[in-house]
Each structure stands twice: as structure tokens, then as C-alpha cells.
Write a protein that binds this DNA or RNA. Structure first.
Lengths: 347, 347
DNA sequence: CACCCCGTTGACAACGTTGACTCGCCCGGT
DNA sequence: ACCGGGCGAGTCAACGTTGTCAACGGGGTG
């Protein structure tokens, strides 16, 4: 036998009016009890509390924030490249953890590197009057956010800096990380190091290219144009690009893959050719299973959890009224040595 | 020079009142224009539209849904085990895609297998008056959801069925999938097949055990109690459990790992012992990189995207007023043959 | 005894929007 | 000229809550 019947007339939710009527007090007293105002006598507080329990009353947060002076909705938006990719998913979890402590719900949305989609989602967020926005942007100009910030919705950037707008940002040390990766390969004897990255419209890619170039210069290695491949949007195209490099005359002996999916595509291509124990690889950004592959994959890891945590903390500071000038935080990367980056070049 | 100054007095957001004043019409006409009511003359519609643009007016969705008869907030909640794990992340993306078409935002939360956390998040969702909830539950009794459903917040279960409550559910064919995996191992000559799974409080685990037992019975193989290991919460404990099995007398020659993290732990343990080319493994649930490991990992894959899509579609049907009796949808699994499951037992 | 202050409670308006209703106008039919 | 109908626009109240202010009773003070 079922414990509950699910069918039947939908039941109206109890409101403060109902609670007030049942407990014989004014609506305002119910409000006071709910908001923990201390000037309510124990007896009334008791009656109200019991009525709330009896009616299963749940205050309507939307009505509340509509009326309140601060207008807080206890919702923030988190706009990421794609919630299904590990970087975004981990970030999302870090944000959720901090938001939970603030009694705040998190809306997540995927931008798919589409500026149009970014506009739509930001607009959806402001229609819902979120208290703040964390964004890993796809657009190249963020001036459109200015009215939102002016009207009190703080925005914190993660992973990629704002352009055409002064706003807080929490970023990885992309240039330094890339430099460290390439130096690592050079110091293992490689002189022919290729760079493979995704869309050059993404600012982090530019920083990583800069780090690559800096490291080559530092070691007195030539920066051959054919060794720098960009605009690889997915695993498959990365694999094709690596295959092309390897099949050309004077193939590189080491690869610096500047992004997650590119690293994976590269490994695919190397495995296919049986070169995965011959060609050195260092990837930017760690990924699950990197330590289960053969060889295990050396990466420059971003501290994604720290990035997310700092970003959401900053956001809550802003929501709390902090109006210091915008700040850019850089979170250092870590070189994780696992094997693929320590393969020596052929003699 | 900065294009915008971010500092200064926060600016009040424009309301319908402002738009009405600027365009010289009543507030109600503004409302009509915004809601696309056809009985507005072209001239007024024009004036209002221009005023909206000029003031950058964005309607307050919360106020709107407070007043509207249907009370829709265009928000749904998605409560998953952990948004950072690939299963949840993929599901989340599938839900987002459909929700987007309905102009609805998705707020995600992680339950971490904690029933208490489930109660808190469901409560947070109803405080925000979400239009519906999709949940992969951690609790073992869902009677507490009945008042919510009665008061008009539909709930759809994914991955795990409701208990103590009649509600829609979209689930994988766990028993059949597990059965297929174990039959596959048996048909490659294995007679000593171990089962490794996570917490037995999770209903899917029970179904997968049932499939395991059914397959053994079908092939006339004995179900030795020592071969059935459960309650492995994470990768590390799975690795330890596999190590213990392998070090015992009469070790199994094949493993059926009934969950993602368990599969990964098992592979770790096998690699450590150099047995990854000797002991066969079939995992339940696919995972990224499964086809880059050596050997590539044979799995029974769930169609996560389909599960998510069906669930969110069902939810929107309910939101739309469908009051048919609750339904349970089962989404079939697929055996993905890659190598690890086709290793023959030692002669 | 008049006065004021304090702690507790309630009445009322307001947040930004939409539903129900009303009002005026123009048109067609007689 | 009169009436009915339909259309465009406006008025008012209400959604569920909180801010403001006033009222009330009791106790301490001069």
C-alpha cells in the first residue's frame, strides 16, 4: 500500500498569513520569528514555531527579497565553458562548497566558447536578479557587463581576464606554467619542441604561447613557426595536427600541449603510431587518469579548487559590500612529473 | 583610458514604472508589451520598446512569478551525487541543454551520498520555489517529498528509484547490464569472477549484484561469498580490496567492477602488480580515457545523456500539467568491447 | 502624580509585477 | 439618432513578504 497518494487537488502552500491566523498573532510577528528578531516574547515565538511546523510553512524567498532593502536573492550564477568538462566541473564543486556556507544556491551554465550564449546567460542571470556572477568568459569584450556591475551585481572572472572592463579576476599563472613546462623539456635535452594549443581568441592561450617562447629564448632555442600550432578545438583535430607534425620532415621530439583536450588528442596520435614511449609530452592542466596511462603523463597542473574557492570568496566579499578596486589574483601552477615529460630525445 | 568607471553610487535598476513614465503610458501597457499581448497599438508598442532599450530595463522575474497565477519561476533544481564526477557532470549538461529551450535556469547541488544534505538542498530548492526537481537521491526514504509534490513541485528521479513515494524515474538497466558484463567474462572462459561495488545502501548496487548472480547461475558457476566485495566508497579502498583478493589463495581471474571509481581503483591495483594484462576487467559505467589505458577498458556504458534528457523532458511535461500516473523509464546499457574484458584466463 | 522610556506588538504601505475590471471610443446595424 | 460590440488603454488590488511607525502597558524617575 502506498503511504501517500500523489494524485488529487494540488494544495496551496501556507503563507505567513496562514501561520499568523493559526497562532493568533499578526503577520509581522511571524516575520519576526522567522528572521530571528529577538524582541519577540517566548510565548508568542513558541506558538508561531508550532504553527509553522504544523502547516509545513516555508517562507517565499522571492517575495522576501523583493521587499527587503538589500534585495538579496541568495542565488549566484556560475558561467563556465562546459559543465561537463573536468576543469569546469571541479570549479563548480569548489564554488558550491563555499556558496553552501553562505546559504546560497548556484546556477551553472555552459557557454561553449560562444559569445552570444554568454550574453544570453548573463541576461538570464540578471533577470533572476542573482546576487553575483562568476564567469569564465567566451566573449572578447566585456563592456556589456558594466551596467550590471553598476546596478549592484558583482562579477568575478575566472580562468580568463576581463577585457574592456575593470573587474576582479582569479587566474592561473599561465605564462610561468608554460615556461616551466618547456624548460623542463629543454632540460631533458630536447631542442625540437612543438606547441599545440586551442583557439587563439582565448587569452590564456596567448599567455601560454608567451611562456613557450620565453623558455625557448632562455635556452637559446630557435622558435620555428611550423612548430607552433593553434586553433585546435577538440581532441580529434589535435590528434590530426600531431600526426601531421610527426609525418613531416624533422619532426619534433617533444610536445607541449597547452590544453586538456589537446593533450588527450596528442596521446591518441602518439599511441596510434607507437611513439608514446619515444616522444616526450608535457600537458597544461591535469586530467583524470593522467597517472594511469602508459607512460604516465607529466603535466603543469592548475589548482582548480583554489581558483574556484578564491573566486567565490571574492564574489561574496563584493556582495557583502566591499568596494575596493578590482584585483587580479594569480594562482600558481605545479609541474607534476610522471614520466611522459622525461623521455629523452633520440641520440 | 577606461571605457567605464566601475566606482560610484550604485544605480537603481529601472522598473516598469520608469519605462511607463518615460514613454508616457501606463504601467499596465508596459506589462502588455513585455508579455507580447497583441492588443497594443503599434505606436505605443514602439514608444515602450524604445524606452525599454533606453533605460536598459530588465523585468524582475521574481516579482513577475510572485504575481502570476501559475507562479512559475523558470528555475529547476538538479541534485546529484557530486557535480565534479563525470556521470553527474554529463547528466548536468544534458539537463541544461533541454532547460535552455524552456528558458529555464538550472541550479545544481551535490549530495555526497548524505541524506541530510539531500533534505537541506531540497528545502533550499523549495524555498526558492523552483518549478521542479531532478534528483539522484542519497536518502533511502523519500516520503518527505510528498508535501512538495502535492503543493505543485514535480520531482523526477534519475539513476536511482524513489522509495516510499510514487514518482517518475529514469534509470539504467542495471541488472541486465551487469548480467551482460558477467556473461561476457564467462564466455571468455572465466569461472572465477569477482564482484566489486560501492555502498550497498545504493539501490543500483543491489540491481547490479542481482545481475552478477543471475549470470553466474545461468552459466552454472558457483557464487562464492568471498568473491563479492561491497561498500567500497572510493578509488583507494577499491584498490586495497582488489589487492587483497589477488593476494589471497585462489585469486579471481576476472573482475566485474560495478562502478566508475571502483574500476579505476582496480586498474591501479592491477598495474601496481603488473597484472593488468593478465586479469580481465569489465567495468560498469564508462569513464573518460577508458580507451587510452593499456589495455583499453571494456565497460558496460550507461547512456547518460539519454537518461538526463528523458528525465528533464519528463519534468517539463509535469511542469506543463501532465498528471498521468508516475512512470519508470529504463535506458539500456551498451557493452563496449575494448580489450580488458577479453583477456583469457590462465590455462 | 505626571513624565518618559523601553520592550513588545500590530497596522499599514511598499517592493515590481500581473489579473480583473472598467472606461471611452469608434464602428456597424437599424 | 440609438444601441451593441469590440478594441485599446487605464485603474485598482493583489501576490507574500518586510520597513516604518505608532500604540500599548509597565516600571522607574523627579
Amino acid at each position: 500500500m502506498e503511504r501517500w497518494s500523489t494524485s488529487g487537488e494540488p494544495v496551496r502552500r501556507a503563507t505567513m498569513r496562514d501561520v499568523a491566523a493559526l497562532s493568533g498573532v499578526s503577520i509581522k510577528t511571524v516575520s519576526r520569528v522567522i528572521n530571528g528578531v529577538s524582541t519577540v516574547s517566548d510565548e508568542l515565538r513558541d506558538r508561531v514555531t508550532r504553527a509553522i511546523a504544523q502547516l509545513d510553512f516555508q517562507p517565499n524567498l522571492a517575495a522576501s527579497s523583493l521587499r527587503r532593502t538589500d534585495g538579496a536573492t541568495r542565488q549566484i550564477a556560475l558561467l563556465l565553458e562546459d559543465v561537463a568538462n573536468p576543469f569546469s566541473a571541479t570549479l563548480s564543486r569548489a564554488v558550491e562548497n563555499v556558496a553552501r556556507d553562505h546559504g546560497t544556491l548556484v546556477f551553472t551554465g555552459s557557454l561553449d566558447e560562444d559569445p552570444q550564449r554568454e550574453l544570453e546567460l548573463v541576461r538570464a542571470a540578471t533577470l533572476h536578479r542573482v546576487d553575483g556572477i562568476i564567469i569564465a568568459p567566451a566573449a572578447t569584450d566585456h563592456g556589456y557587463l558594466h551596467p550590471e556591475i553598476r546596478s549592484g551585481t558583482p562579477v568575478v572572472f575566472v580562468d580568463r581576464p576581463p577585457r574592456g572592463l575593470a573587474a576582479d579576476a582569479v587566474l592561473a599563472t599561465n605564462t610561468e606554467g608554460a615556461r616551466e613546462a618547456v624548460l623542463h623539456l629543454a632540460d631533458h635535452g630536447h631542442t625540437e619542441i612543438a606547441f599545440l594549443g586551442d583557439a587563439r581568441t582565448i587569452s590564456t592561450v596567448g599567455e601560454r604561447v608567451a611562456g613557450y617562447r620565453a623558455a625557448l629564448a632562455e635556452r637559446g632555442l630557435p622558435a620555428r613557426p611550423g612548430r607552433l600550432v593553434q586553433d585546435l578545438p577538440d581532441t580529434a583535430s589535435a590528434a590530426r595536427a600531431v600526426a601531421a607534425l610527426l609525418d613531416a620532415p624533422h619532426p619534433p621530439t617533444a610536445l607541449f600541449t597547452a590544453q586538456n583536450l589537446v593533450t588527450i588528442g596528442a596521446i591518441h596520435a602518439l599511441q596510434e603510431r607507437g611513439l608514446h614511449e619515444r616522444v616526450a609530452v608535457v600537458g597544461f592542466d591535469d586530467f583524470p587518469m593522467a597517472d594511469l596511462l602508459v607512460p604516465r603523463v607529466t603535466v603543469v597542473a592548475q589548482d582548480v579548487i583554489r581558483i574556484g574557492t578564491l573566486a567565490v570568496r571574492r564574489l561574496f566579499e563584493r556582495i557583502g559590500g566591499d568596494d575596493a578596486p578590482p584585483r587580479e589574483d594569480r594562482v600558481p601552477t605545479t609541474l607534476v612529473v610522471r614520466g611522459s615529460g622525461e623521455i629523452a630525445p633520440p641520440p
